[in-house]
Simulated scan of single mutants.
Amino acid sequence: MTHESSQPDEDLRAALSRVVAVIDPTLADRLEHDVESYLDLIDATQQASKEIDRLLHAAVTSARLAGASWDRIGHRLGISRQAAQQRFGRPAARSETISTEATRRLTPVTAFDEMEALAEAGRHGWHSVGFGMYFHDLARSEEQWEHRRVGAFGARQKDLQHAGWQRIGSMWFPWAYYKRPTGRPAETT
């Protein structure tokens, strides 16, 4: 194995180690003298592993929404198309939202058209209050809204919050969604 091919693995391992350290900041010092700390290390590592598995499921869902086939996804995972579909193909339970004058569901939308659809809805006073696979749940207000989608990996999220953007729900890997009112009255149709 060359240095070039092992470096990404080493970088990932270091980053994941930092994550485990964040889960329990006292762990590193306790490992020097406390047998129980090794069991705590197992707990923290298992917690991180479960979250990585959730992120993998979200990444596969995102790839499917972007149009990737089960064959290509299976190839990337080193498993068959059928195995990928069996493991990741069950859609998450989706709550149904009844449309009213104050709420509605924007569907179907994908990673390729959702921001344009949200921009149009935002001009008419609708803003996202939740989202999932192929949809955004919207609430109505009297002013226009703007929406942003940013990568879940970067530091931009803090900058957006400082600029008055509100985070919408929890992260939908690999994206985080934000909204803010513009102060302009909603357009009427």
Rank of each mutant, 00 (worst) to 15 (best):
H3Y: 00
P8I: 02
P8M: 00
P8S: 00
L12N: 01
S17R: 03
S17D: 04
S17H: 00
R18T: 00
V19R: 02
A21W: 02
V22K: 03
D24Y: 00
L27W: 01
L27I: 01
A28C: 02
D29V: 06
L31T: 06
E32D: 12
V35A: 15
E36L: 12
S37K: 05
Y38W: 11
Y38T: 10
L39N: 14
A44G: 04
T45M: 08
Q47E: 12
I52C: 04
D53M: 12
R64F: 09
L65Y: 11
A66Q: 12
A68D: 15
A68F: 11
A68V: 15
S69N: 07
S69P: 09
D71K: 14
R72N: 12
H75T: 14
H75I: 10
G78L: 03
G78Y: 03
I79N: 05
R81W: 06
Q82N: 08
Q82A: 10
A84G: 06
A84K: 09
Q85W: 09
Q86E: 09
Q86Y: 02
F88V: 02
G89W: 02
R94C: 15
S95Q: 15
T97P: 05
E101L: 13
E101S: 15
E101M: 12
T103P: 07
R104D: 02
L106G: 05
T107V: 14
E116P: 00
L118Q: 04
H124C: 06
H124I: 02
H124S: 09
G125H: 09
G125V: 08
H127R: 12
V129Q: 00
F131E: 02
F131I: 02
G132I: 00
M133W: 08
F135T: 05
H136L: 04
H136S: 09
A139C: 08
A139Q: 13
R140F: 04
S141R: 12
S141W: 11
E142C: 09
E146N: 05
R149Q: 11
V150I: 14
G151F: 08
A152H: 06
A152S: 11
F153V: 05
F153G: 06
R156E: 13
K158T: 13
K158E: 13
Q166K: 09
Q166R: 08
R167E: 07
R167K: 15
I168C: 08
G169F: 08
G169Y: 06
M171Y: 10
F173C: 04
P181N: 13
A186K: 06
